[in-house]
Amino acid sequence: MARAVTNRRKAIITVAAWAVGIAIFFPILWIVILSFKTEGDAIRSPLEVLTSTWSLISYETVLERSNYFRHFWNSVILSLGSTVIGLIIAVPAAWAMAFVPGKHTKDVLMWMLSTKMLPPVGVLVPMYLIFRDLGLLDSRVGLVFVLTMINLPIIIWMLYTYFREIPGEILEAARMDGASLRDEIIYVLTPMAVPGIASTLLLNIILAWNEAFWTLNLTAAKAAPLTAFIASYSSPEGLFYAKLSAASTMAIAPILIMGWFSQKQLVRGLTFGAVK
């Protein structure tokens, strides 16, 4: 009888867990609610906010006025671009380290990880000057490069932990049957590696989408992604609650949905395989 869960106990835990869950989620829920209100209604007391009429006017104004699409598009290009380029560089590297480990493989992996420990502000000045001199300030090309480099260690590590789970015997069997390195990669490895690559892709899009140090410091108007665009609401414009809410809702919705799909991979990716 010891572990039998009574329904009463389960009900109490259900209420407690839901209460905590809703409390934590509440700020997000609140901006979604405010985004469907008019500017005047959005700053009223909570009860009046909830009972006032719903409207799409804030979305319309944000989309009309502020080049919203350009910033959204910048976010898409930066996160997708840096992730895809990162994968192109990382897949061969992780593959080689997982299946042809050498004496120094571990050292190389640890060293790659150590580049991630470098605080970005430590190299802010030289990066800024390099970008200025190369004319890369406020350009998408430059930012794609930076985002690729800051996430590359995570990509390699995640892929490495996935690839290592692919049994080596399968590769040996393929080799015995006369498969070339190319055949091995295309017919044996790729199908088994796709799930790992997909989750790596997902997690990195999320990380790149939300990156808010380099995107804030190296862009102005042209290449600014949503992180930087939303930051412009920190001026008195932030007092326009409904518009800020509409802009924010559109900025976080796609990534929230992706994030929910990748919650398992998140643990593995962000702990570099230390917790699975």
Binding site: T227, L256, M258, G259
Partner: peptide, 10 residues
């Protein structure tokens, strides 16, 4: 887990 996916500026 939702708050983790909200960008810092938002």
């Amino acid at each position: 887990i939702a708050p983790f996916f909200v960008m810092p500026t938002v």
